[in-house]
Amino acid sequence: MKLDIRTKIIITLLIATCASLNTNVTVEIGMMIFIGGLQLMSGKKVFSPVLVILYAVFAITQYAIFPVVPGWVSMLLSMFVVNIRSFFPVVMCIVLIYRTTRISEVIATFTNMKVPRGIIITIAIGIRYIPALAVEMRAIWEAMSVRNVAEGIKNPFKRVAVNMECYIVPLFISSIKTADELSAAAMTRGIENPAPPTCRSYRKMSPGDFGLIAVILLFTAGNAYARYKGVLL
């Protein structure tokens, strides 16, 4: 199943709205199953069993464990558990977008929608840089772990400051160098051409896309109505 990027963005928006309106765990589990189904239909590598397991852990913690443990445990952890748990449907949607959307698709679709070129470049690079940033942060962490940069410093505030500086400095230098090198490479590939690029990866929205949006829109409207009327709480 191949969903249009616009469909995926609209689904994420609507699911996020449902997640903030909904307070019923059954409805939430239903959302998780639905999005999980969309992920499975989009390809093997799209579905994330880890997320589903984590969601189950959080949901069980909130609904089965908190009621039976001492009150202070729930006091300490409830906000953490609830905030993370209620965000899972949105995270599943973001994973669906990330694992099934190519940057060329984003560029082609937004170009067709007449989004300004600068914003398209920003969004494309934003998507492009996230995995690269993860690699960089990992490399810096590894370098820091081998060198104990704060050794010999007794003042705890200074230790924190030195550690922070040692994370931030190479990260910033690397980020700026990446920006410079990426820009140079992109310029040699004609990114500054004012004429619209070929939208090779552009596809029109299919009836399936519209159908799916309609279903989730109805679901969202249902959630809003239920919330307004105070049912399904």
């Binding site: 600068g118 470049i121 920003t122 969004i123 494309a124 690079i125 934003g126 840089y129 996230i130 940033l133 990260l171 980020s175 700026i176 990446t178 920006a179 410079d180 990426l182 820009s183 140079a184 992109a186 310029m187 990114i191 500054e192």
Partner: peptide, 19 residues
């Protein structure tokens, strides 16, 4: 702003998300 400025701003924007 040119392409390189947008690219730099995009990278810093991602870093701000990390923050």
């Amino acid at each position: 702003m040119k392409a390189k400025d947008f690219i730099t701003c995009a990278i810093f924007s991602v870093l701000s998300m990390v923050g």
